[in-house]
């Protein structure tokens, strides 16, 4: 694990997300109503919708393009849709949001 500080929790709106750019594409970092953070691919496997722009409810997000719903915990599509997004370790410490850079790098290498 190589935790990387990407910014303050306050920079992400509650029930919203911000985007972190990586060499291989964008990662959406979500903040739930309960101030949990989750990092997932910012790309819906259906038609590439930006999940960071979706409505966040509980621990799930609804894609803004065609309303696929994904669990932010497991990355699995909910309901009748079949698909998954990659999830990355993320946590909050002293009000800062940390991502595991080693996982992101491995993603880049893959």
């Amino acid at each position: 694990m190589n935790w990387l500080d990407i910014g303050a929790l306050e920079d992400i709106p509650r029930q919203g997300a911000r985007v972190v750019k990586t060499a291989q594409g964008c990662v959406a970092v979500f903040r739930t109503a309960a101030d949990e953070v989750f990092a997932v691919d910012d790309r819906c496997p259906h038609k590439g919708g930006p999940l960071s722009e979706g409505i966040v409810h509980g621990n799930a997000v609804t894609c803004p393009l065609h309303t696929w719903v994904f669990s932010l915990k497991t990355g699995l599509a909910q309901g009748a849709d079949d698909g998954a997004i990659a999830t990355y370790p993320a946590r909050v410490e002293a009000g800062r949001v940390l991502l595991d850079a080693s996982r992101l790098a491995r993603r880049a290498a893959a």
Partner: peptide, 9 residues
């Protein structure tokens, strides 16, 4: 974007 890790990654 909140952070750009493209170079580091």
């Amino acid at each position: 974007v909140m952070a750009d890790l493209a170079l580091e990654a």
